Simulated scan of single mutants.
Amino acid sequence: MTSPEAIRTGAERRAIIEATIRALEQDEVMLTPPEAARAIGCGERWLRDGANHRGFPHHRFGKFLRFSLQDCREIREIHREMARPSALAKARRRKATTRKPTGSGTATPASVRLKPVA
């Protein structure tokens, strides 16, 4: 008995392989570590260490390390930090919520006292 692959001619096999390669290349661009580091905005060593030891998404083809565009997006999202309000903003917010209203309301020019210039 022969397998279906044995029946195919050399030309048919080459056409199948070329179609497969084209399909793979259309979907993904594979970046080398220096290219991916530049795209992400980080150092190449940090990116390699992350892929080797910290579980960053990546592809490995034998000894070659590659990153897809989706991998780069995921790495950036993993390390995205939400903005934190500064200590001054926190103090202002705390002060605004603990203020007790004064009886007169807003200050008028007559009630404002200026320090004399020495």
Rank of each mutant, 00 (worst) to 15 (best):
R113Q: 07
T32V: 05
A91M: 07
Q70R: 15
D49L: 10
A107Y: 11
A107K: 10
V112H: 04
I21Y: 00
R73P: 02
E77M: 11
S3A: 10
T108N: 02
T106P: 02
M82L: 14
R84F: 05
R93P: 01
V29C: 09
E5G: 05
S111F: 01
T108H: 03
A15K: 11
S86N: 06
R93S: 11
E77F: 05
R73A: 12
R99V: 12
K100R: 15
I16M: 14
C42R: 12
D71Y: 02
T106H: 13
K95N: 13
A87N: 03
I75W: 01
I7E: 06
K100H: 11
G50I: 01
P33E: 07
R92S: 03
P33D: 06
R13T: 08
M1E: 04
R60H: 05
K63A: 13
E77D: 13
E74G: 03
P33R: 12
L88H: 09
A96R: 15
R94F: 02
E35C: 01
L69N: 08
E77P: 01
K90E: 15
P109I: 12
A36H: 07
P57V: 02
P101H: 09
G10S: 09
T2I: 07
S104P: 01
G105P: 00
R76Q: 14
S86A: 07
I21S: 02
A37N: 01
S104W: 08
N52Y: 05
G10M: 07
M82P: 05
G41T: 00
R45T: 13
R66A: 08
A51G: 11
S68M: 02
A83N: 06
I21N: 05
E18D: 15
A23L: 11
A83S: 06
A96P: 00
R13Y: 01
E81V: 10
G62A: 03
I17P: 04
R60L: 09
L47W: 01
R66L: 10
E5L: 15
A89F: 06
